[in-house]
Deep mutational scan, measured.
Amino acid sequence: KPRTPFTTSQLLALERKFRQKQYLSIAERAEFSSSLNLTETQVKIWFQNRRAKAKR
């Protein structure tokens, strides 16, 4: 499956949310993903990858 090209504004929103909170609840993820026009899976995986990056 092809890589999702996130827009700059989506990335800024994702990073801002990640700084507030590294783990989103299912409800938060649902609301946040629809506000960004992304799927919940895209947001879930982005947060997983971002947490992995933060550990490195």
Rank of each mutant, 00 (worst) to 15 (best):
K1R: 04
K1V: 07
P2I: 06
P2W: 01
P2F: 05
P2S: 09
P2H: 06
P2Y: 07
R3W: 04
R3P: 12
R3N: 15
R3M: 14
T4A: 09
T4N: 12
T4D: 14
T4E: 10
T4S: 10
T4L: 09
T4Q: 09
T4G: 06
P5N: 11
P5K: 06
P5V: 11
P5W: 03
P5T: 13
P5C: 09
F6D: 06
F6P: 01
F6Y: 10
F6N: 04
T7G: 04
T7M: 00
T7E: 02
T7I: 06
T8V: 10
T8N: 12
T8H: 08
T8A: 13
T8P: 10
S9E: 10
S9D: 06
S9F: 07
S9V: 10
S9R: 07
Q10P: 00
Q10F: 07
Q10H: 02
Q10V: 05
Q10A: 04
L11S: 10
L11I: 09
L11F: 02
L11Q: 11
L12V: 07
L12T: 13
L12N: 15
L12F: 08
L12C: 10
L12Y: 15
L12K: 14
A13W: 00
A13P: 00
A13R: 09
A13G: 08
A13N: 07
L14A: 01
L14T: 03
L14H: 15
E15K: 05
E15A: 04
E15G: 01
R16C: 12
R16M: 10
R16L: 12
K17T: 09
K17A: 07
K17Q: 07
F18Q: 00
F18R: 01
F18A: 00
F18V: 00
F18M: 01
R19M: 14
R19H: 11
Q20E: 12
Q20I: 06
Q20L: 06
K21S: 14
K21E: 13
K21I: 08
K21Q: 13
Q22I: 09
Q22G: 08
Q22M: 10
Q22A: 12
Q22R: 06
Q22C: 08
Q22N: 11
Y23H: 12
Y23C: 09
Y23A: 08
Y23V: 11
Y23Q: 10
Y23P: 02
L24I: 10
L24P: 05
L24G: 02
L24E: 05
L24Q: 06
L24T: 00
S25A: 09
S25K: 05
S25R: 02
S25H: 08
S25N: 06
S25T: 11
S25W: 02
S25C: 05
I26N: 13
I26L: 12
I26V: 13
A27S: 12
A27K: 03
A27C: 11
A27E: 15
A27L: 09
A27H: 09
E28A: 01
E28Y: 03
E28M: 00
E28I: 01
E28T: 02
R29W: 11
R29A: 14
R29N: 15
R29V: 15
R29M: 15
R29K: 04
A30L: 13
A30C: 08
A30N: 12
A30Y: 06
E31Y: 03
E31K: 05
E31H: 02
E31M: 03
E31A: 06
E31I: 07
F32I: 06
F32T: 06
S33W: 00
S33K: 03
S33Q: 04
S33Y: 02
S33D: 03
S33M: 01
S34K: 08
S34F: 08
S34M: 12
S35H: 11
S35W: 07
L36K: 02
L36E: 09
L36R: 04
L36M: 09
L36W: 08
N37I: 02
N37P: 03
N37R: 08
N37Y: 10
N37D: 14
N37F: 03
L38E: 01
L38N: 02
L38S: 04
T39Q: 05
T39K: 05
T39S: 12
T39V: 03
T39Y: 05
E40D: 08
E40C: 03
E40T: 04
E40P: 07
T41W: 09
T41I: 05
T41F: 12
T41K: 03
T41V: 09
Q42A: 13
Q42C: 10
Q42L: 10
Q42G: 03
Q42S: 08
V43E: 03
V43H: 01
V43A: 02
V43N: 02
K44N: 13
K44C: 12
K44V: 11
K44Q: 13
K44A: 07
K44E: 15
K44M: 13
I45E: 15
I45C: 13
I45H: 12
I45V: 13
W46V: 02
F47C: 02
F47Y: 03
F47T: 03
F47W: 08
F47R: 03
F47L: 05
Q48K: 04
Q48E: 15
Q48L: 05
Q48D: 15
N49K: 04
N49S: 10
N49I: 03
N49W: 13
N49T: 11
N49P: 03
R50S: 09
R50P: 00
R51I: 15
R51N: 12
A52I: 09
A52H: 06
A52W: 05
A52E: 15
A52L: 07
A52T: 09
A52D: 15
K53G: 13
K53T: 13
K53E: 15
K53D: 14
A54I: 10
A54Y: 07
A54T: 14
A54N: 12
A54V: 07
A54W: 05
K55F: 09
K55E: 12
K55L: 10
K55W: 07
K55Y: 12
K55R: 09
K55Q: 10
K55N: 14
R56A: 13
R56W: 10
R56H: 12
R56E: 15
R56G: 15
